[in-house]
Design a protein around this nucleic acid. Structure first.
Lengths: 191, 191
DNA sequence: ACCTGAACACCGTTCAAGT
DNA sequence: ACCTGAACACCGTTCAAGT
């Protein structure tokens, strides 16, 4: 598989910057209208750009989803850093997990990005790595406090969080379920 | 939403029975070949039946998936019944969860069916209900034994199981992860 | 470096015509 | 009651032609 070779965001031509923004804006409009197909043809039409342009910026669905979720993911990374700095690591962990679940519930694309083990865009890859180190620090402290079993790592935390989100979304009253399942997860992490 | 009005399996014309079987067989071939799109047009072609026939038997993706997963779901219901009869409910619960995870890992369509809160085919609806009662009995006994928190019901168990499956599938070494996350779930259920 | 739109293969879905 | 295949709208993807 060839690495998708995107131009660094800093050296994009001005029309390219504008087109990309219009595509993302159109995609957000569609998502807000309850259409989560994110079809590139319709997106190009809706954004007023050529089909080829849409494909140049977002060669596949994953690229588009990562572009849409970038801000939300960055916010989650920030949350993870604060959690790692919490004097009470167990409290920091629980707060972070709750924030992550709320974020995914409010933003489906964030859930999709967190679910995929291998992001494709360089920006997302970077954020993902930063998330990993923040979660790692948090986990080290939480383990020392006895809040997390020693056989669980940072990536396990990401995966379990996505799992709880899936569980909460797979039935009625997802908000109430989210709280219940969060308690299950927190208790389960301690082993 | 109108109930999808399928003819009861007992009174199907013989050609209908055969066509349905051929469609399911073709779908399994496609899945075995790593093609999980389950496109109805291609399916009809591959099964040697008309497009309209494919749509008559499987008016949407969910119907097809449920048709494909019926046997696996029935097997899981049987497992749930045995688990409910286990003299040690905690052991029965853990065994059942492990079996469910193994089943979903080996059969993607089973995972898809268990993830959806509202099956569409009458057969699946029936199996789903039976699963609910079996899980309910198991949970009652497990709660009495202190293995499950009182605020979790049968449908929570289904959803959490699907969640763990998602978590295990969302990264490397799904088999090893499955065991780790199963321990997290079992510990978490006790609260 | 980037944009455009024609072009092609393919899918989802419907439906009139059949037996 | 069921099957068939044409038909239509639409999508994914590519690519030659442009600036």
């Amino acid at each position: 598989m060839a690495q998708s070779r995107t131009v660094p965001a800093s050296r994009r031509r001005s029309d390219a910057v504008r087109n990309r923004a219009q595509l993302l804006e159109a995609a957000r409009r569609q998502l807000a209208d309850g259409d989560d197909t994110l079809a590139l043809n319709a997106l190009a039409r809706c954004a007023g750009v050529g089909i080829g342009t849409a494909y140049r910026h977002f060669p596949n669905r994953a690229t588009l989803v990562e572009g849409l979720a970038a801000d939300a993911l960055a916010a989650f990374v920030t949350d993870a850093r604060s959690a790692a700095d919490d004097p009470d690591p167990a409290r920091g962990l629980a707060t972070l997990l709750r924030a992550g679940l709320a974020g995914m519930a409010g933003d489906h694309v964030l859930a999709e990005v967190l679910r995929s083990p291998h992001p494709v865009c360089v920006e997302t890859i970077g954020l993902s790595r930063e998330l990993g180190t923040a979660l790692g620090e948090l986990l080290d402290r939480a383990r020392a406090a006895g809040a997390v079993s020693p056989d669980l790592g940072a990536d396990d935390l990401r995966r379990l969080l996505v799992g709880v989100h899936t569980a909460a979304s797979a039935g009625p009253h997802p908000d109430a379920a989210r709280e219940r399942y969060l308690r299950v997860l927190v208790a389960g992490l301690a082993g």
